[in-house]
Design a protein around this nucleic acid. Structure first.
Lengths: 244, 244
DNA sequence: CGGTTAATTGACCCACTTCAAGCGCGGTGG
DNA sequence: CCACCGCGCTTGAAGTGGGTCAATTAACCG
């Protein structure tokens, strides 16, 4: 059963960047197919798959990751509700990475056939879906910069700011507090660091009182300072409402 | 003056992934607007710009890059002829990075208004353009993995393989030889390394005879070995012809 | 032939890794 | 109700990949 309100985080995400007509909303609702659930640490899609649906994340967190020959893992993206975890599989067809659940998650699937129909009937909506995948690309680029040219501390600070702003923008965080079900091991896989070093860097941020992080609960006591530390500005999140 | 054959590298690139109809080719030709030239190290677009055209690279090489607070540069993508250097600006509107010329380059501009028209009249072609930007994303992800989880040597080996395969696929390299107008400084900005270390790593590859690199000319005497070193397979380049 | 940019080399340093051990806590089963 | 287990967090010690600084050489160029 597809409940209309399920799409709210997605509509919200789109409407942060442009306006959506009612017909477009309806078209998206009609394109939605199936409600699926996954347990924490389950894989939604596996590298090499040729999925015939794309999954919109409704609740929980997921990550895109790859494994290297030596068994190391690199997480290349984190998804929050309202994100398509694999909209790019619509054009790429084959998965170049896996998608795993960081927590228990619920998704809504969109058959590629239905997405194709949207590209045939709703050009503006198509451009918005296209936009969603280019937003992914912008975050990838920002991560490359953080990984290649900033210290571990700066990188972590940046990640915290970015994740907070993404959650906040869809109404899932506020007052500089958020809940993030991610282990230090996983954080290392995001940042390209060892878990041990993540721990040390995190303690460094705590010592400066740049973040308060207890279990899953994170608080940012001084946003401006953490943002400066991480060289964070929200530019690469494109939270600007423009005709697209 | 737009000469039809200018679009050949682009058609070639698209046709490696799907079939293009004659109408679609014509539509692309009509959408092309202006021929532009840039000198090596000039910027085609600057971070923060709101361009109203996207540029298709015809000859030469360009890079996408960002500068950090401390003046470090990170290159997040390299473009070869047939690549759109900023197709994502069509949906993103604002540039989250600059694009610089690595050599003298020629591009063909496509006004966003003309691209919009394509999205309204040519759904399949639209999906192919969308595909081009998701291909960028796949390369970004692969770079994140290489940067976060492989050694400098592996990373460089991977970059050489990837670049060769991209050039080879559009007919600009063959027999495991290519010409790459890139300095060790710039290579460092690609890999997230210092120029000094790039030099050492390159010499290490030379010592193993994994690459022969003299000036701009590169030869890969043993492809399988370099690919194994860099954990390279072409999967993330999606050189598979499929209906999209 | 001087001037400039790129490649190279050496010496030293440090950010981050690896390995290893200990700790805290929630969950489970007897 | 408690003992035990396992996972995630924390800490220490030692090693290393890659950075920085500085000087030299090579290649090019007008």
């Amino acid at each position: 059963m597809i409940i209309e309100s399920m799409l709210d985080p997605f509509f919200r995400r789109l409407e942060l960047r442009d306006t959506l007509s009612n017909e477009e909303k309806l078209a998206l609702q009609r394109a939605a197919h199936e409600h699926r659930f996954y347990k924490a640490s389950a894989d939604l899609v596996v590298q090499g798959d040729y999925p015939d649906v794309s999954s919109l994340l409704l609740t929980g967190l997921t990550s895109r990751y790859n494994l290297t020959d030596r068994g190391f893992r690199q997480i290349t993206a984190i998804h929050v509700p309202g994100d398509f975890v694999d909209i790019h599989s619509f054009t790429l067809k084959k998965m170049d990475h896996s998608v795993g659940a960081l927590s228990d998650v619920a998704v809504l699937t969109f058959p590629h056939a239905a997405l194709q129909e949207i590209t045939e009937k709703f050009p503006h909506l198509t451009r918005l879906l296209w936009l969603m995948s280019t937003l992914d690309g912008a975050i990838h680029r920002r991560w490359l910069v953080a990984m290649g040219r900033t210290s571990a501390t700066e990188h972590l600070a940046h990640f915290v700011c970015e994740t907070y702003m993404r959650l906040e923008s869809i109404g899932l965080a506020s007052a500089h507090r958020m809940v993030l079900p991610i282990t230090q091991e996983e954080l290392g896989d995001v940042l390209g660091l060892s878990a041990v070093h993540v721990n040390r860097v995190l303690q460094d941020l705590r010592r400066q009182d740049a973040v308060r992080w207890i279990g899953n609960e994170i608080e940012i006591p001084d946003w401006a300072r953490l943002a400066a530390l991480g060289q964070f500005d929200g530019d690469h999140l494109f939270l600007e409402r423009l005709p697209r």
